[in-house]
Design a protein around this nucleic acid. Structure first.
Lengths: 333, 333
DNA sequence: TTGTAAGCGTTATCAC
DNA sequence: GTGATAACGCTTACAA
């Protein structure tokens, strides 16, 4: 691989001049610039990004920590982040935190050991304290799907409460009164907020939520299956099942049908997130859209603005969900 | 950030010694080693991976090019690759090729500009020539889901022909005779092979495939919907619909039901790939398993073995698919 | 076992 | 405008 030395020799100029035409900022006479460009071309020169990083103290890399690299939710998130950063000439190093504290810490350490200029973190188990300590260490990062008031300006979040509220509204408007709820894990803020918003919608209309019709799952399909099954077998009637995310809704739909019931004639189902497979479900799932693509893009822009000062686009940190009407929710006469 | 100089000063040893204890290969007296370790700890020293890369001419990074970062297939692939590499202390830089030649080239250029030690490529539009030229340039890479005989040892592939054959066998064993096929794009090798294997299975049993019951889609859900719909409206009867991948199967299932037919009573459906959402479909999709996780892991191991010489695990480049029986395929009396 | 010193390929600060 | 030259923070012969 040719180096800048060979280019400078061939072009008959100094290192500095070659560097100048590469970076295009300083003034170089057009004719010398051409000589350099030619030399680069004939040598098939490519600058060493490693040497550039060492000299400039900037790696142009941002670390991305997600819970899993598979899964429709993270897929959309990673895709939007990568594409936004790549347009700006930055690359991302992606790694997984596996929803475990130790693993999330290790992931951050790993990214830091790679000298990322900034991090985008989707962490579930890490404490606020740990994250605030990162901030103290002058590590620049943005949190996605996590709210810490002290650093609100670097948190990109969804209004989960509103989403839960919209879900509640939707089934009430459809005339349902006997309603079951498949909750997410209560230690997760988003799960709590979705549930709180949901309950608020019901309360406002004076509809009571039977405690026997609440099941706490873990956001995975299997727990959706199990939850719906138990709810069904408990004997408490319901005409609508609201699920705190789409995975659980998918599991629940299977359970409902395995119990011989029809969706949505016997029971309506509503999900949350609007991940891609919801359109493949039968019936197509009515759900609350989580604009994870937009949020990923915004997380990337925050980095671009704060760390690289390369964009001035306006910043938004709180996003709003919205109802997506499909066929799994049916009006109750 | 503390540097190696400060560590060496504090520990009262030379740079080289610090470097030695960091890398753990050369011999260092236990007592001096402890001094160095202590100094590192009190300074909270972290080596600069950038400087290490420059000095050692190894970035410990492997570039990964996939068509899209979202999508269940790529998700599983990326997850397995990342986890295998990470265990070995390597990181991956992931980017998207978007199934377009220009974009795939740009992706590779991008990864190369980042000085990756090796690449793992899932490319669709790039020519064999281009890939062989990469090889000539001494760029170390492995191809996933792509067979080029001249560099077979660095191609990790699935036996798609066998998969198509298994699919054909499965529906014949279930007693179907009137069979429709939703093919993948004919310019893709995997699509061609799946179809060829499928046809072979039918031919061996003397079952004819009506040309009017073949539709060429593009592996996306929408084309599955469209294909199934056209097949249905064509008036040619069939009791089983075989799809060249799961996405199209999902679309087809929606089309079949939108046309008032039942799955699997009126028509059986079989998919290919066994991506995660197939278990959420109703009825759960019978499909051919594509062991993409194992293949991703193997791709990573190939890199670990060839580029980093860090593993000696045995290498396998051809993988076999297998039938996964679920509920969408029903025996025909 | 440990130290010295020459790279690695850039950027950036000065002069000129 | 252009050229020297000193960083940047490590690794790695080669000596000692």
């Amino acid at each position: 691989m040719a180096t800048i030395y060979e280019v400078s020799a061939l072009a008959g100029v100094s290192l500095a001049t070659v560097s100048r035409v590469m970076n295009g900022n300083a003034n170089v006479r057009e004719s010398t610039k051409q000589k350099v460009l030619e030399a680069m071309a004939t040598l098939d020169y490519r600058p060493s990004s490693v040497a550039q990083s060492l000299a400039s103290n900037c790696t142009n890399s941002v670390g991305l920590l997600v819970s899993e690299l598979h899964g429709p939710f993270y897929g959309t998130m990673m895709a939007s982040i990568e594409s936004e950063l790549r347009r700006a000439g930055k690359h991302c190093i992606i790694t997984a935190g596996h929803s475990e504290e130790k693993s999330e810490k290790a992931g951050i350490e790993f990214l830091l050991s790679r000298n990322c200029d900034a991090l985008i973190l989707h962490v579930e188990k890490l404490s606020d304290e740990y994250l605030l300590a990162l901030k103290e260490k002058d590590i620049s990062f943005v949190l996605i799907n996590r709210q810490i008031d002290a650093i609100a300006e670097q948190c990109v979040t969804l209004d989960n409460h509103l989403g839960g509220y919209q879900m509640g509204q939707a089934i009430l408007e459809a005339g349902h009164q006997k309603i079951a709820y498949l909750a997410g894990p209560s230690w997760k803020d988003d799960a709590k907020e979705r549930f709180a918003g949901f309950k608020q919608a019901l309360e406002e209309k004076g509809v009571e939520l039977d405690p026997a019709l609440i099941f706490e799952g873990n956001f995975q399909e299997a727990s959706g299956y199990k939850g719906a099954r138990e709810l069904l077998l408990s004997g408490h009637e319901f005409t609508a099942l609201c699920c705190a995310n789409d995975e659980m809704a998918a599991g629940a739909m299977n359970a409902i049908r395995d119990n011989g019931l029809d969706i949505p004639n016997d029971v309506s189902v509503v999900g949350f997130d609007n991940v891609s497979f919801t359109q493949y479900l039968f019936p197509r799932l009515t759900t609350i859209d989580y604009p994870v693509g937009d949020m990923g893009q915004m997380a990337a822009r925050l980095i671009l603005k704060n760390t690289y000062k390369t964009t001035t686009s306006t910043i938004q940190t709180l996003f709003k969900p919205h109802l997506v009407k499909r066929q799994s929710l049916q009006p109750q006469e």
